[in-house]
Amino acid sequence: MSDHSSSEHSSSLGTYIAVWLALIAGTILTVVAAHINLGPFNAAVALTIATVKALLVALFFMHLRGASEKLLKLVVISTIFFLFILLALSMADYGTRVWS
């Protein structure tokens, strides 16, 4: 919310390049982390990195960060909320059911 006024939503070229480099670094980091034995945390690390990358794309490339209103953020958050509901309540069944 700092650098640009909310009406003109495009960031500077430098920001784009920095985000692009961060995304590539994140990709390499994911691959490296996958080859290290972290026990049960491998999946968590991979998903965390993926989420950070997705956030970078959404905030900077899709201009969610500079969006003039909170509405777009609300759309994103509520979608993720309902996706979470689908996964969590399904797991409420699968996590407690014996099936083969």
């Binding site: 994911t30 996958a34 080859h35 034995n37 491998n42 991979a46 990195i49 993926a50 997705a54």
Partner: peptide, 15 residues
């Protein structure tokens, strides 16, 4: 794709 890549390609690669 950012999600598909680790979920599909990088399962349990540690040896």
């Amino acid at each position: 794709w950012i999600y598909l890549f680790p979920l599909l390609y990088l399962i349990d690669l540690r040896k």
